[in-house]
Design a protein around this nucleic acid. Structure first.
Lengths: 239, 239
DNA sequence: AATATCGAATGGTTTAACCATTAGCATAGT
DNA sequence: ACTATGCTAATGGTTAAACCATTCGATATT
């Protein structure tokens, strides 16, 4: 009938109060909180306890702390970083394998490109073409590192084209976490890079006429092909 | 060229050491860390600083802290909770609207059901049928609250059927966050509940023969229909 | 005017003490 | 013998006061 009375931890109360203030818009990003020695009086707590609260808020990505005079806790604009980080932890702890990630990525990136293609503006296409030309230069110079970086930018940019922040941060999270495997298991060469570049060109063509289905099919095939290659590589190495 | 040398914060070093130990398997879930008063000596720090480190580790979901004698910090099995929580924060902070969520959900749940249907075992089907019968009872008793809870269980269970933890936690996160809107904007009635039940039956039928495409199409239509209704309701109310 | 120096504000850390919760044990009462 | 009560010690939670380290701006010096 009754719930166990939650044992209050003072720092948790402080965390909740500040978090609520941020979520209610009472504390807007950029606001500087009072110095610790004042905050501790406001919340009627000790500095140690207050600092535990600040650590939690910092970890949640709600505040950022600067040193020195005129330093202090500043309310941050909430971004996807804590999500990315905690997912990375989950992955690294072994709860998620490369296969799991790749399987998810194939599905999600197909849908994502479909949306992006449907909503592509002329400005988007121009931006994509600029990235394509950049990638082409790196391809010709055999500069794999910068090629990959540009490839990364392309994926991120297509994410923004969806105009949907959920897709955007999922895209970012997946790529942040999958990149580690790529660098380790899928060394680039001229042939593979060209393949990548060709797929890219096809997608831009499909997007130019807002052909969502085609664009989606190409990216799904692209992701699947690269994932399979990486999987082969891993299986091969482990034998 | 160089990065600014990160100003060392002692508690961060403690966090890193313990986190690394967990990720390297040197500390397995269930292990109890020494009491604070010993840990502070081990790391050669003060108790306050050590506790700041523990707060961060707790927030990351790496440890859990129990009170009283034989209490202390216990290494946890890392789960999706921190990911779900930080994503919820991102959503609640206003970066994500219901439309964004619904759009994402339509796509992801289609793919998810497709996978689940392809991998459905007889045991899975039995479990789904049990949930279906339970939902039917609540439908007949006009018990909307429990009907919705069961509906929630169905979605979660279909998530587990994918055998892919990424899909599982995305499904959980989306539903955790969308549920708030549902309860507020989409009051259930006999007609709507029946519609829900009918869709559910169709999906089970498709899954019985591992017809992934059909199952996927049904759920996408289902989610889209309910999202549209909710959207209407919201637009109507706000006018 | 440019540069060097210093001081104050502010986060980072330490220490030592006390409070609150809990598990286990000892004791008393039946 | 068994149960219930209460005591004790271990452990996390909190407080307080002091000092260190970093940074910015004011002031002095050249």
């Amino acid at each position: 009938m009754f719930k166990r009375a939650k044992q209050s931890r003072v720092f948790q109360d402080v965390v909740d109060q500040i978090q609520d203030a941020v979520l209610n818009g009472k504390l807007v990003p950029g606001t500087k909180l009072p110095p610790e020695r004042e905050l501790k009086d406001i919340f009627n707590t000790s500095r140690g306890t207050l600092r535990e609260a600040l650590r939690v808020l910092e970890q949640k990505g709600l505040i950022e702390i600067k040193l020195g005079v005129s330093g202090g806790a500043i309310v941050k604009r909430i971004d996807a970083e804590p999500v990315v980080e905690s997912l990375a932890l989950l992955i690294r702890s072994g709860g998620v394998s490369l296969e799991h990630l790749a399987e998810f990525r194939i599905k999600i990136e197909g849908s994502l490109v479909e949306l992006a293609a449907a909503r592509a503006t002329k400005k988007d296409i121009k931006e994509l073409e600029a990235l394509f030309n950049q990638a082409k230069v790196y391809y010709e110079k055999n500069d794999w590192e910068n090629f990959l970086k540009t490839d990364e930018k392309v994926h991120t940019f297509i994410g923004t084209m969806t105009r949907n922040p959920v897709f955007q941060f999922v895209q970012k999270t997946i790529h942040d976490n999958i990149h580690r495997y790529y660098a380790e298991y899928l060394p680039m060469n001229k042939e593979r890079t060209l393949e990548n570049l060709t797929d890219f060109e096809k997608i831009i063509d499909a997007m130019k006429v807002n052909d969502a289905k085609t664009a989606s099919a190409i990216i799904m095939d692209h992701v699947k092909r690269f994932s399979d290659k990486m999987q082969e590589k891993i299986n091969g190495n482990s034998k």
